[in-house]
Structures are given as structure tokens and as C-alpha cells.
């Protein structure tokens, strides 16, 4: 869910710098390639379709919690913010509030976006009523 969000939205929901644990980068943020695979016939053995850019980041909070994120694309800020949010979501003081201010709204927004696309798709469903009647 964090990977699908945009960086600004995550940044806005995180506690301000003075009121959150300090984090140290363990790896990245770094951009590289991820091979995407399909399946032969959609269900069979895998084959290589082509690569995508991904950016990953791992960081550790002062109290030892480790956050990790990998996102599609090359937005280093997004990967780092997502990794930071991942660490905070494991933190007893921050997990519950962050679930409410970040994860719940993200889930709702992403579900809404999916539903909006599904509704447009549903409107293009072909109905063969006439043909069925003629045949029947």
C-alpha cells in the first residue's frame, strides 16, 4: 500500500521530525532493475517479460526497528519515506496512530481508485440480450 502511494502523501502523514525516532539508512535508497516474469499461457511455467526500474531502501530506527521498502520507478524520496513508515508501523508508539492517519486513508483511496476503474469497465460490458432473444 505504501509502495502504491505517492511520496507527498506519506510525508504529510508522518509525525514531524522532532517527534519521531531518528532513522539511519542501512541501504539505499538505490535504483536498480527487477525482472518481470509472465507465465506461458498465463498459467504455465514462467518466462522473462522485461525489466522494470525499482528503488529500494532499508533503514533502522534508533531503537533497532528496521523498515524496508521497494517501489516501482525511481523516486528515492518515496522509497525512503515508505521504508520509514514501514519501521514506524512496527513501533508500539507510532503503529496505531499511523495506521489511522496513513494506512486507512491510503487503503480507502486505493480501493476507490480501483472501484472507479472497475465501474468504467463495467459500463463497457457488452450485453447480447437481443441476440439471445432471437436465438431463443
Amino acid at each position: 500500500m505504501l509502495a502504491r502511494a505517492d511520496a507527498a502523501r506519506i510525508a504529510a502523514a508522518l509525525p514531524p521530525p522532532g517527534k519521531r525516532p531518528h532513522a539511519r539508512r542501512l541501504r539505499g535508497p538505490e535504483t536498480g532493475l527487477l525482472m518481470l516474469r509472465g507465465r506461458m499461457g498465463g498459467t504455465g511455467a514462467p518466462f522473462n517479460l522485461g525489466e522494470t526500474t525499482v528503488t529500494r531502501c532499508t533503514l533502522r530506527l534508533d531503537d533497532g526497528l528496521v523498515g524496508h521498502a521497494t517501489i516501482l520507478g525511481r523516486d528515492a524520496d518515496h522509497a525512503e519515506l515508505a521504508a520509514f513508515a514501514d519501521a514506524l508501523l512496527q513501533h508500539p508508539d507510532f503503529a496505531a496512530p499511523l495506521a489511522e492517519t496513513l494506512i486507512a486513508p491510503l487503503a480507502a483511496a486505493q480501493a476507490e481508485a480501483r472501484a472507479a476503474i472497475a465501474a468504467r469497465a463495467a459500463a463497457t460490458r457488452v450485453a447480447f440480450f437481443t441476440l439471445q432473444t432471437m436465438r431463443g
Binding site: M35, R37, G38, I117
Partner: peptide, 17 residues
């Protein structure tokens, strides 16, 4: 760019059509 690895096979049966 370095290659980090490979994704799990994309499951088109679970596509948001």
C-alpha cells in the same frame, strides 16, 4: 543499472480487468 533480482511471476488471472 544493477539488477536486484526477479519479481514473482505476474498472475494475470488476478488482473484488475
Amino acid at each position: 543499472l544493477p539488477r536486484f533480482g526477479a519479481a514473482l511471476p505476474l498472475e494475470t488471472g488476478r488482473m484488475a480487468v
